[in-house]
Nucleic acid binder design. Sequence first.
DNA 1: CCTCATTATTAGACAAGACTAATCTATTTT
DNA 2: AAAATAGATTAGTCTTGTCTAATAATGAGG
Lengths: 220, 220
Amino acid sequence: MPTRSEEDHIKAVYSLLQEGDSAFTKDIAERLQNKASSVTVMLKKLAEKGFLKHEPYYGAKLTVKGRAFALQLVRRHRLWETFLVERLGFGWDEVHEVAEQLEHVKSEKLIDKLDAYLGKPHFDPHGDPIPDKKGVIRERKTRRLDSCAVGDHVRIAAVSGTTDGLLRLLDSKGLRIGTALMVQEVHPFDGSMDVKPKSGSAFSLSKDVSHHLQVEKGKP
Amino acid sequence: MPTRSEEDHIKAVYSLLQEGDSAFTKDIAERLQNKASSVTVMLKKLAEKGFLKHEPYYGAKLTVKGRAFALQLVRRHRLWETFLVERLGFGWDEVHEVAEQLEHVKSEKLIDKLDAYLGKPHFDPHGDPIPDKKGVIRERKTRRLDSCAVGDHVRIAAVSGTTDGLLRLLDSKGLRIGTALMVQEVHPFDGSMDVKPKSGSAFSLSKDVSHHLQVEKGKP
DNA sequence: CCTCATTATTAGACAAGACTAATCTATTTT
DNA sequence: AAAATAGATTAGTCTTGTCTAATAATGAGG
Ligand SMILES: [Mn+2]
Ligand SMILES: [Mn+2]
Ligand SMILES: [Mn+2]
Ligand SMILES: [Mn+2]
């Protein structure tokens, strides 16, 4: 059974591979707040244990076994986040660190029961998909808000790169998962965007923000 | 902030001091499934950190700081046990190991919210008191069932020394926290005891079992 | 009071996981 | 093509927590 540190490394590799097509030592180190040298050592160990392939100087890729393991870890993380927000009343900007700990509790039964208790949710409080017990993820077609054009009607599906500051900014503008928006104007100068929610008046979002909003097509 | 191992040692000392008036190296080691030599080293460290006084060869006693810390740990353990049984539907014989892990999650807010979510319970699924946020324990006057006499009417308040086997035995006889019993007969030969529940017919309990049942006076 | 069994402590080893410093590799810049 | 730079790896150190083996203290029985 992998240790907490091993688990965190596998998860970091998984999520970097989601974003790009390689997981480099430096980026893993940054995520985990470790030094690159520590990561190299860990990658070697995880490669020996069969969770990933480590191509020195060219990063790491997960094996089938490593991917399956990462999906279970992501499942645990997101189920706990859902519990914290839906049941305990945490804000969506407050759950990450706690879930980071809870995800390492070893008990299959615990996760099964938690999942059932929460009604087998498919998405976490940030709109990210929760893999099921077999590791299957419900796919959706989403695009980043900053790739939308004037006149598009969309619904916020997920917030990517969830830092607490971004989440609080969204809170303050009344934006949450499911919020319907219409793109009213795009300013080429700074990439900022004016959006109008279904109810209420339009306001502006910086490119920095719109880039982190994953949206689905919505009805006009 | 104490590590997981430090926390477990402090808790072991606390619970041994609840049972007797000293916590010896060997007994701590046994609880934690460690060797005595490892415990000695840890006691020295915890003494330096001010959690306890270690009198070599005469065991350990908690300081005020250590006791306060232990009470918070016990609080966390018992709140999680309550959650697992009341909300997730675990059996009372299945929660110990999981709570042993959950108790180490570091987040004061988590415990506050969990406590509120559960309705600020005063007792865990085994009838053990849950210290409040200040570490205050609601005291009750209980006695062991094996110290009761023929004709006594009692109510089961708690199960002490909760091993899974004992809990399952109680389950099978329909005994749980709150069950009312009348002591019908005590057999001096083996210390066994015949008890009659309010509804249903009498049955026998070995001394081994009755010794672990904490009871309160009940109405005839 | 002496002996001995039990318990505790110390000393030394080891594994895990982190670090720093030194070295090496790949890639970009000149 | 050589040099510079960013990134990665290796080697060596440290801390934590565990162990085993050797030694020491305590308390009970003779
Ligand atoms: Mn984690
Ligand atoms: Mn999330
Ligand atoms: Mn524990
Ligand atoms: Mn309990």
